[in-house]
């Protein structure tokens, strides 16, 4: 009954979609999209595929072969793969436990996870900086305890800490949602058919939570591949990420052509990762976010 209802709702909204009654209502957004999405994209393509004299060239794309850019791309891929892996390893068990224990304390933990998302991410990263700086809070505590101080800031580990901290909620929430949607009867049915806890987890819970995992991976991997602010603040510019070199091309070298060319390279990586995820997620349930 509710299914039928939903379908009717859906078909009605499709109708509305086909013949908009007030098309001008979309005007402000179209204006916005044209000015801040379409035009910049056109400019990136124009600069990326042209030389300083305005003629067509692939030289800006070929710039990726230069060691400095190649290394930066490598660092970025390392950071985004690493961040995604760290977030997944931490988030999956947590989401599983929280979905199984939907009590008040569970809801409280979800709020704790979501709460930092309401604070500007730069503030959050600056707070992490305060914690791990050479004379920061962690070293202060270690000093008071008479333990050796640690060099935390300006290392790759510091960047991982910052990105993983920053993107963690984006991994937990979709997985948690997907797990909450698994009907308890289905798990009982698996037990009923002879599956022990491990088999039920492997054959039922993992596949049914996959859409959430894929959403989580996309929401962590794609933004972290173009990350540069966290590397600046916590990595102390010692580790150049791809986002950093693109930023330098625009702001320091004033070379918009190379900067755009490198942006196009980055775009290729993002599109490839989306295609890979789409292949894995055959049912397309993870598509909600893109």
């Amino acid at each position: 009954m509710s299914n039928l209802f939903a379908r009717r709702e859906q078909s009605r909204s499709v109708e509305r979609h086909n013949s908009p009654r007030h098309p001008w209502l979309a005007g402000p957004y179209i204006f916005w999209a044209a000015g801040f999405i379409v035009l910049p994209l056109v400019l990136v393509f124009y600069y990326g595929l042209s030389g300083p004299d305005g003629t067509f060239t692939l030289a800006n794309l070929a710039a990726i072969a230069q060691p400095i850019f190649r290394n930066a791309l490598g660092q970025s891929l390392l950071i985004s793969f690493g961040t995604t892996a760290i977030c997944l390893v931490l988030a999956y068990p947590l989401a599983y436990i929280l979905s199984k224990n939907r009590s008040r304390s569970g809801a409280f933990i979800i709020i704790l996870i979501v709460l930092p998302m309401w604070i500007n991410f730069l503030l959050r990263i600056l707070a992490v900086q305060m914690l791990i700086a050479n004379n920061g809070i962690i070293n202060m505590i270690l000093g008071h305890l008479g333990l050796a101080q640690m060099r935390l800031i300006n290392t790759r580990a510091a960047i991982f800490l910052g990105t993983a901290y920053d993107y963690f909620p984006f991994m937990v929430l979709p997985i948690y949602n997907a797990m909450c949607k698994i009907d308890h009867d289905i798990i009982e049915a698996a037990h009923d058919l002879g599956a022990n806890a491990l088999t039920t987890f492997r054959r039922i819970i993992v596949p049914l939570s996959l859409p959430g995992v894929i959403s989580g991976i996309i929401m962590v991997f794609i933004p972290s591949i173009s990350e540069f602010a966290i590397a600046d603040i916590l990595g102390g510019s010692r580790i150049l990420l791809f986002g950093n070199v693109i930023e330098q091309e625009f702001n320091m070298s004033n070379d918009w052509h190379t900067g755009s060319g490198l942006s196009l390279i980055l775009m290729v990586f993002i599109i490839i990762s989306m295609i890979v995820m789409h292949r894995v997620d055959k049912d397309g349930e993870g598509q909600i976010i893109w």
Partner: peptide, 20 residues
């Protein structure tokens, strides 16, 4: 004895087929 060790099977009210 847990359900997976019993020679008993159940047909659930909401069918509970594995959707995947």
């Amino acid at each position: 004895l847990p359900p997976n060790k019993r020679h008993i099977n159940t047909v659930f009210q909401k069918y509970s087929l594995f959707p995947h």
